[in-house]
Design a protein around this nucleic acid. Sequence first.
DNA 1: CGTACCTTTGATGTGAATCAAGAGTAGTGG
DNA 2: CCACTACTCTTGATTCACATCAAAGGTACG
Lengths: 235, 235
Amino acid sequence: MTQVQDNRIDIPALLARLPLFQELTPEQVIKIAAQAREKRLTKGEMLFQKGDPSRGFYVIVFGQLKLAFPSSSGNEKVVAILGPKQSFGEAVMFMGRPYPLFAEAIADTLLLHVAKDTVFELLASDPSFARHMLAGLSMRLHSLVQDVESYSLRSSAQRVIGYLLQHCLIEGDGDFTGSIEITLPTSKQIIASRLNLTPETLSRIFHDLAEAKLIGVQGKQITINDLKRLREYDF
Amino acid sequence: MTQVQDNRIDIPALLARLPLFQELTPEQVIKIAAQAREKRLTKGEMLFQKGDPSRGFYVIVFGQLKLAFPSSSGNEKVVAILGPKQSFGEAVMFMGRPYPLFAEAIADTLLLHVAKDTVFELLASDPSFARHMLAGLSMRLHSLVQDVESYSLRSSAQRVIGYLLQHCLIEGDGDFTGSIEITLPTSKQIIASRLNLTPETLSRIFHDLAEAKLIGVQGKQITINDLKRLREYDF
DNA sequence: CGTACCTTTGATGTGAATCAAGAGTAGTGG
DNA sequence: CCACTACTCTTGATTCACATCAAAGGTACG
């Protein structure tokens, strides 16, 4: 919230820390920063709708947003929950097609928009940028493939466990024998959709896992009591 | 089958026709061709297993193969059915991770293997190659996102219809008012898995659509009688 | 021409969605 | 600070789409 009020942010420094721009020269980073557009969103605001044209890609400075498919029957399918330092929209930009999904801020958010032209100039001048861009898209592709595997081969409980385990790796600092604390990044509703579940089903799964003493649930705080047994919970 | 016996194929000419290599100079294409390795597979043979390391990517000259996840319970999940001129394995190559799925020939197949080093040299020397590679990965990402949408938002019948409609666009040559013939590229078993269905369910859906006079089914020959009504079949 | 696999058809089972209420929990304004 | 509104989350009863199980044709191919 302190930064929201601050209109002057050190954009070059911020960009230079992103994996995507890691190997660029300071001059290149400054050039991108100069050409990038700031975009502020308040919670609940739409960044783009499905079908909108793409003019570049986005980087999240702070805040949080979701990428999701709209659906006739009101319920939507969340594909990704994104936070600071994450970028999105690259693939759509390279294909010159309209967005296949919509983006909505789920917290007050500051974004940088990097224009297509800026990217293409960089690609032409710096092969290492191309490699990073390719690596970035490859990662995205890989995790989507993982999602497809989850959706088609795993039960709802297994998907929830997979989600928790993935977030252990990020948050858990070495302490693997004891209990691990996770803070859910957003509402259970949104997480349920991300896991292709209804909120009711997610709630029941948390309940069952808690009853089996595998985890503890207290609002957004999840305690993993027995990592080993959770991994093997394979019914 | 005639080409299988022929050990001399004009590889440069073949490569030059691929979208990926479209803008390369003749010299570059010849260089790739010289460094590419031929790989022959007979129907049923594995190209790589889940977990194998990647040393480059593949291009299909002729034949057909499937990319799929193995599953403990024997049943597998087919992610892609690939044919001539299609490439695969780029993303895994760029990430330096092992394959997340396996590849199996579903017909006698000839592949070209382009080594990682070759790709990286090209990337460094030709920005247009980088753009094509990025466009290629973006397309792949886009279609995976479509798959995720299908799996999570559409019913089994809708997925089957979507599959048929997609194949109309490729095979259907303008004649939109009359009936359109489609030849399924492989067995119904594999197509069912690709659509996240059991063979039984796919069979029943074909039966229902045929009963409603929307399509005709005769082995691998599918006749679409009423494209308009098929598109609107939304139950 | 027989064996092995693909495909169809029918009967039954089940995981997760849907429907329906109630219990937190969080912001809002008087 | 407390009541008011609006969500979000939980819990239970019921339903349904699709899978599973079982068995009988078809089809291909050695």
